[in-house]
Write a protein that binds this DNA or RNA. Structure first.
Length: 749
RNA sequence: GGGUGAUUAGCUCAGCUGGCUAGAGCGUCACAUUGACAUUGUGAAGGUCACAGGUUCAAGUCCUGUAUCACCCACCA
């Protein structure tokens, strides 16, 4: 009767989204009111705090598709009578954003130092807000039914306050402390990094064999092999294996470090591998984690020769000062060769640590940083995992997480950045004094003044708080410059967000039900959220972790901007629509496995979306205006078909609850296309052939068909919300349905 | 060095607690079709489920081992 377009136009998706927004039923409080009004039993709230994407760029396909998992489960739960809260947010992404925005400034010929800390922070904030807006639009474009009235940014002052509380509590309990040890320094980002923020890469390098003459008999020498000759300037020992007969006679003697002209001892340690290199190893405690351990064990001196920018410094010959490490290495090799102390150089490939963000080589250096002793937290988290209070899907990832907890090391939480939450600490008499006293246990402020030669205007104590503390006479307080590691705040995301939104939200919606995110951040994020959540709330922040697969380029390689094989979400939306993309993702991106993006597969799903539109169109167009009243009575008899539909709906529901979205997606496609369309509609055509409009037969056939269609739209809606809602609204226009499909309740009994 | 996962049709993959005469999508081939849908329908071809053992009435599915690949973790100069 009514002329509907011949094919489904996915451009309508934007209009449909605004319909949902207008309904405000993405707000769980409104949804609860709605259910009460409808006289439906209100079930317990269902909450997922959504992973906040970095607010320094647009979303990529992985983000966007990831949200379709949140959304399918959220929509399903909503249609089951749970007030659902999908809580969105955006992440300030400390180091990454600082680097992105600094580059952005560079292009305009500016530096962050010119702007100053406050202005830099302000501009970066603005930059993030702009990106957040784009990201939000993209989230809506995939159909994410999140409650945007509650959206939070990780640097929101309400959140920062909660993060600070955690810090104070941890400090008071002795979990947080300052320590001087070897850290991973990224010379480019110019900040310390936690171990987890680094990656390993195979790189070509050299293996140089250098002769260290004995101090008391220069004609004898020990040859050491190294991949980093420049660190020899900071050597404080040579280590050999205690049972290595080649070197036994040298143990306890001294060698003369060439060029640096320093005498260092030959020590014996079990850790030394006699097979590797020459069996004698140079020890550089300040610039190698292994050597640092050795130095602790043997009480060796620590000599710093590389600074935080990766340049040579310290007690070294003038000519090397300020050189980059590689440059220095070359210069040293040349000089050693001239002195006849270079035995040979081999080319090798070795593993080097690089910055996870900018892929610059990590410089291990000695530095004072803030640490969190995560061991006790990890133990609790591990126990909860083992008690199945938190489950990880797929199972294999759970074991990886358990392993992570079992082997956890202190977490360096301070970063030398401007973009982030400033650590709320004040030092009486300055940070330098505090660190000096820490290193020189038992000494006093007076000793500091004498030995360092600086007047200390303070007691060397700490004050915890944001605002400058009151000073007694002459006392000067220095504010901590460092900020928290991003993950220190995002690690508190589930409870911090809900708490920031108010006592009531926390009570109603915490703990949350599940966490869904990509595999690559499981240690960074989920691992931390469980620990911090337990610490602050004594409850696990979520019961299930669902780890999504990664989207790959069509040749199976990783998508990356540099390879120019990445696909913009917009391109897919424009061409095939969000529903088609979602349906493809459910089917192909199984947890733990990767999904190469094949356009023809999305196209196949788009065909199905269109099929839904057309089957509905057929039914709608065949119902005569005069028959609407009769049909809308929905006087439905229990038939074989209605029973089949009921079973089908139940089955799909089970799949969703077991997180088997691929089976759910397959199931709805199979049922709608090959049962409803290919068989039932074809049958109906024959049944009504020749029947006059308004006949009992026609009313019966179309009543049943309409019922079947509506039940199918409902169960398909969580997967493909747009087209199903579009059809539903056409039915509403004809008085054949009511309200929004999003809020309809499934019949699951 | 340790861990996890994968290996099933030409391609991408499903197959939950063992019952399969092994499935889907895309591709291929044949036929049909102005149909609600030129974004359709019907049908066909195509697989000793990596390999070798074992448990079982029964194994793609469980166990052991082997091989190849992928990812993660790890301080080896």
């Amino acid at each position: 009767m009514e002329e509907l377009p011949k094919s489904y136009n996915s451009e309508a998706e934007i209009k449909i989204y605004s319909l949902w927004e207008k309904s405000s039923l993405t707000n769980p409080d409104r949804m609860k009111e709605y259910l009460e009004k409808e006289g439906v039993e209100v079930k317990s709230p269902f909450t997922i705090t959504l992973p906040p994407p970095n607010a320094n760029a647009n979303l990529h396909l992985g983000h966007v598709c990831g949200y379709s998992f949140h959304d399918v489960i959220g929509r399903y739960m909503r249609m089951k009578g749970h007030p659902v809260l999908l809580l969105p947010g955006k992440d300030h992404a400390g180091i990454q954003t600082e680097s992105v925005f600094t580059k952005h400034l560079e292009k305009e010929g500016k530096t962050k130092e010119e702007l100053g800390r406050e202005e830099f922070f302000r501009q970066t904030y603005e930059f993030c807000m702009k990106n957040a807006k784009n990201a939000r639009e993209q989230e809506k474009r995939i159909g994410l039914s999140a409650d945007y009235s509650r959206e939070l940014f990780t640097l929101d002052p309400r959140l920062t306050e909660i993060i600070y509380e955690t810090f104070f509590k941890m400090f008071k309990e002795g979990l947080i402390y300052r320590d001087k040890r070897i850290i991973n320094q990224c010379p480019k980002c110019n900040t310390a990094l936690a171990d987890i923020d680094t990656e390993h890469e195979s790189k070509r390098g050299i293996f140089a064999y250098i002769r260290y003459p004995l101090a008391d008999s220069p004609e004898e020498y020990i040859t050491v092999a190294t991949t980093r000759p420049e660190t020899m300037l900071g050597d404080t020992a040579v280590a050999v294996h205690p049972e290595d007969s080649r070197y036994a006679k040298y143990i306890g003697k001294k060698v003369l470090l060439p060029i640096a002209e320093r005498e260092v001892p030959v020590i014996a340690d079990e850790e030394v591998d006699t097979e590797l290199g020459t069996g004698a190893v140079k020890v550089t405690p300040a610039h190698s984690p292994v050597d640092f351990e050795l130095a602790q064990k043997h009480g060796l001196e620590i000599v710093n020769v590389i600074n935080e920018k990766g340049l040579m410094e310290g007690d070294i010959p003038e000519r090397f000062k300020g050189m980059e490490t590689v440059e220095c290495s070359k210069a040293l090799v040349k000089e050693l060769n001239e002195l006849g102390l270079l035995e040979k150089i081999e080319n090798t490939v070795h593993e080097v640590m690089v910055c996870e963000r900018c892929r610059t080589d990590i410089q291990p250096i000695i530095s004072n940083q803030w640490y969190l002793n995560v061991k006790p937290l990890a133990e609790k988290a591990l126990k909860e995992l083992q008690r199945n209070k938190v489950k990880v899907y797929p199972k294999g990832q759970q074991r990886a997480l358990e392993h992570f907890y079992a082997n956890i090391q202190p977490w360096c939480i301070s970063r030398q950045l401007w973009w982030g939450q400033r650590i709320p600490v004040w030092y009486s008499g300055g940070k330098k004094l505090y660190d000096w006293l820490l290193e020189n246990k038992g000494k006093t402020v007076g000793d500091f003044e004498k030995e360092v030669g600086i007047k200390a205007n303070g007691s060397g104590e700490l004050f915890l708080g944001e605002e400058e503390p009151k000073s007694s006479k002459g006392e000067i307080w220095e504010k901590e410059e460092d900020v928290f590691d991003t993950w220190f705040s995002s690690g508190q995301w589930p409870f911090s967000t809900l708490e920031a939104l108010g006592e009531e939200d926390l009570k109603k919606y915490y703990p949350t039900q599940m966490m869904i995110h990509a595999r690559d951040i499981i240690f960074w994020w989920s691992a931390r959220m469980i620990m911090m959540g337990l610490y602050r709330t004594e409850e696990v922040p979520f019961k299930d972790i669902f780890v999504t697969g990664m989207i790959l380029a069509d040749d199976g390689s990783k998508m990356s901007k540099s390879k120019e094989n990445s696909v913009e979400p917009k391109a897919i939306f424009d061409k095939y629509g969000a529903d088609a993309l979602r349906l493809w993702y459910y089917s192909d991106a199984l947890p733990g496995s990767n999904a190469p993006l094949r356009e023809e597969k999305i196209k196949g799903n788009r065909n199905f979306i269109n099929k839904i539109w057309n089957a509905s169109r057929f039914i709608i167009m065949n119902i005569d205006k005069s028959e609407i009243l009769e049909i809308s009575k929905n006087d439905i008899k229990e038939t074989e078909k209605t029973e089949r539909v009921k079973d089908h709906v139940l089955q799909v529901g089970k799949y969703i609850e077991k997180y088997q979205f691929n089976l759910g997606a397959e199931s709805i496609r199979e049922f709608f296309w090959h049962e409803l369309c290919d068989i039932w509609i074809e049958e109906a055509k024959k049944q009504v052939e020749g029947e006059p409009v308004g006949s009992v037969k026609r009313i019966e056939v179309f009543t049943e068909l309409l019922y079947v269609l509506k039940e199918n739209l409902k169960i398909m809606h969580p997967f493909i919300p747009f087209v199903t809602e579009a059809v539903w609204q056409e039915l509403v226009n004809l008085d054949l349905a009511e309200g929004v499909l999003m809020a309809q309740q499934l019949r699951l009994i």
